[in-house]
């Protein structure tokens, strides 16, 4: 007797979301099956990887990644163009880390100017991220949303402590929005509910359940993402159907395994290769858990994960 593949049927569907504008606009989500299980359903859009850049010199990034961008990282416009033109990036994620009170405390106006300059220099979609400082982000992201008006960006991250002003700005300037909670499935759902209750369409939301690096809580992120997807697909939970983002790079490039040199710990092997693998493996795990959009740093890691995507889709 011929073997029949057992198939699960899903009652729900991940929402599709488009960002950017013009011919380079991107679409993520829209699948009605678990990640890469295309034999069970339809996966209309591949996961997308955005290159992370920032508004100030990436002095806190380890050498392995810093040196990839030495020629351009003193200027976010050049950096964004490098990603677009040289690295063939599909999207760029601009982190306004310099607005953090402990990292230079740049003003909202300065941040808004950076956003404007970057947007006018590239054609690929832009993701605009704050510095993850609850109070400061509430003003920085509002200014950034206004500066990016008409570009259909993704802005974030709206959190429990600041979502109201950020949601209002995303609403007013027609952006997509990342809602982030800290590794708590119930809070992730609650935040999505609160945001949609403000009149923000769930079709314009992206869920960030908070990323973590391999060896540093990856399994927690994995479980939360997986549970979100199961709620979306098997329980048809409308609040859990937005696409998921994995903000991989910032969690990976600070752990010991991406910092310690091969001379210090010979049994771990060469640092550069190890760091790239650490980011690629963390990112791949996020994809298999359900992430639709990844934010990453090292070009080699991006290349590796893109290859995985090509082979699995």
């Amino acid at each position: 007797m011929a073997y029949t593949i057992p198939k699960e049927t899903y009652s729900g569907k991940v929402l599709g979301l488009e960002f950017g504008k013009g011919p380079k606009a991107l679409k993520v989500g829209g699948e009605n099956t678990l990640p890469f299980l295309s034999f069970e359903g339809n996966i209309p859009n591949k996961p997308v990887i955005a290159y992370e850049i920032q508004d100030i010199l990436p002095e806190d990034w380890p050498d392995t990644v810093q040196k990839q961008y030495t020629a351009v990282s003193d200027n976010p416009v050049k950096w964004a163009q490098f990603c677009q033109n040289d690295l063939k990036a599909q999207a760029v994620a601009l982190r306004l880390i310099g607005t953090h009170p402990d990292r230079g405390n740049r003003s909202s106006e300065d941040a808004a100017k950076t956003v404007k300059d970057v947007l006018s220099a590239i054609e690929i979609p832009l993701i605009i991220l704050g510095s993850n400082h609850i109070e400061k982000d509430a003003s920085v992201l509002v200014a950034a949303a206004e500066a990016a008006s008409g570009y259909n960006c993704i802005i974030g991250k709206a959190q429990e402590g600041n979502y109201k002003t950020i949601v209002a700005a995303a609403l007013a300037h027609n952006h997509k929005l990342i809602a982030m909670s800290e590794l708590d499935i119930n809070l992730a759902k609650q935040l999505n509910i609160l945001i949609t209750q403000m009149g923000f369409d769930k079709e314009r939301l992206i869920t960030d359940p908070m990323c973590s690096a391999l060896g540093y809580g990856l399994e927690y992120t994995y479980s939360v993402m997986e549970r979100i997807r199961l709620a979306a697909l098997l329980q048809n939970d409308a609040t859990m159907q937005p696409p998921i983002v994995g903000d991989v790079g910032m969690y990976v490039w600070k752990v010991k395994e991406t910092l310690a040199s091969g001379a210090d710990i010979p049994q771990w092997g060469a640092l550069e290769e190890r760091g790239i693998l650490w980011e690629a493996i963390t990112a791949t795990a996020m994809l298999t858990a359900g992430a639709n959009l990844l934010i990453m740093r090292h070009p080699k890691a991006v290349e590796t994960v893109n290859k995985v995507i090509e082979e699995l889709v």
Binding site: I185, N186, K189, Q190, L194, Q197, Q235, D237, M240
Partner: peptide, 8 residues
Amino acid sequence: GKTLYAHS
């Protein structure tokens, strides 16, 4: 376990 808990 048929609905995911959230305060709302």
